[in-house]
Design a protein around this nucleic acid. Structure first.
Length: 353
DNA sequence: AACACGTGGGA
DNA sequence: TTCCCAAGTGT
């Protein structure tokens, strides 16, 4: 970085440059306690911070924000969330994706409320022991909720650090190296602000495609910028192509409403509600419909999951007179908002008519 | 270690 | 359209 400064002085310079930038340019977010908030006497609520961190895992701020308000409105304290029926939590999480987060969220709330007296742990190990709280989230809560020394490494930090140091190892192999480099800069004096600052830097300045180096407090030290190719970093392994899976969904609409079913607790869309369908397989499904009828094709729903693309052939029929579903239940069609329907199933339901 | 696990928005 | 991406965790 600088020939005239020691590594320790370099780190201090980076720290203060980032914190100064954060004080001026850092984002105001609903769950965030900024320095001026603290000055005004506002204190962090670990429950609200934890909730935001779980929702923001692999999820954009605009997508997660309304959910955060809704959850706090319904369940202002961790005890309230703990006391909520699981179906309610799944229903409110519907559309946010990665539904294991919602299952772990509920389990975590119950654990904190029932075993820890409603208080979130304020140690790294204590936090990491909670369901759904891993290395990143434990550090983030430690910093943002308790202002304790921590080093957060998320996708933003990976990008900032690999550019700053021109890390030549591709992700995900570079993670240990990134962790070391990031921890060396993290501020012991203002850990909460620092953690949020470095993520803000990645989110608003050191962006994936078009970084705004002119606005960057670390431009003076950035190796990738010196090289003239910021977006080359982070290096990444090639992604595997997504296979296509096919299925047929059975949209059964009768006087009692729509035939729905709760999915098993584990696995894809675990604990969520679905329109019953054949298994989703790479070869065309050959499973018989639930009953003989003149099924009407309603078209195809395409939905991209993390590791495969789904094409659902949606067929509709009224229930046969002598048929009762072996599993699932009937849901009134004007009450579908009360169902924990994931986005893919909302697409299926909207197809009819 | 590698894979399973959602969704919607932007280029 | 297609591809990439966004505050990761659990197994």
């Amino acid at each position: 970085m600088s020939a005239s400064l020691s590594p320790r002085q370099d780190m201090a310079r980076l720290r203060s440059a980032l914190l100064d930038w954060y004080d001026r340019e850092g984002r105001t977010l609903p769950w965030r306690i900024r320095p001026e908030d603290r000055a005004a006497g506002r204190v962090a609520d670990p429950y609200a911070i934890w909730l935001s961190e779980i929702m923001l895992q692999q999820t954009t701020v605009p997508h997660a924000t309304p959910y955060w308000f809704r959850f706090l409105d319904l369940w202002p304290r961790v005890e309230d969330l703990a006391a909520a029926p699981r179906e309610d939590v799944m229903r409110e999480w519907a559309g946010l994706g990665y539904y294991a987060r919602a299952r772990n969220l509920h389990a975590c709330a119950r654990h904190v409320a029932e075993t820890l007296g409603g208080a979130f742990p304020d140690t790294l190990d204590g936090l990491k022991a909670l369901p759904g709280v891993g290395e990143y989230t434990a550090n983030a809560v430690l910093a943002a909720a308790f202002n304790k020394p921590a080093s957060v490494v998320d996708g933003n930090v990976e990008r900032v650090i690999t550019r700053l140091h021109r890390v030549q190892t591709p992700l995900p192999g570079a993670k240990p190296e990134i962790r070391r480099l990031a921890a060396a800069i993290a501020s012991p004096d203002r850990p909460g602000d620092y953690a949020q600052a470095i993520m803000d830097l990645g989110a608003t300045v050191c962006t994936p495609r078009t970084p705004d180096c002119a606005a960057c407090p670390w431009a003076f030290a950035c190796a990738a910028r010196a090289e003239g190719d910021m977006t080359r970093y982070p290096l990444k392994e090639r992604k595997k192509p997504k296979p296509v899976r096919l299925g047929t969904a059975w949209l059964v609409r009768g006087e009692q409403g729509l035939w729905l079913r709760r999915r098993p607790d584990k696995g894809l869309l675990g604990g969520m509600v679905e329109v019953p369908s054949t298994p989703w397989t790479e070869v065309p499904p050959d499973e018989a419909p639930p009953f003989e009828a003149d099924w009407v094709s309603r078209g195809e729903v395409r939905h991209v999951f993390t590791h495969f693309e789904l094409r659902l052939d949606v067929r509709e029929s009224a229930p046969a007179p002598d048929w009762q579903p072996e599993d699932g239940y009937w849901a009134a069609e004007n009450q579908l908002d009360n169902q924990a329907l994931p986005s893919v199933m909302r697409k299926v339901v909207k197809l009819r008519r």
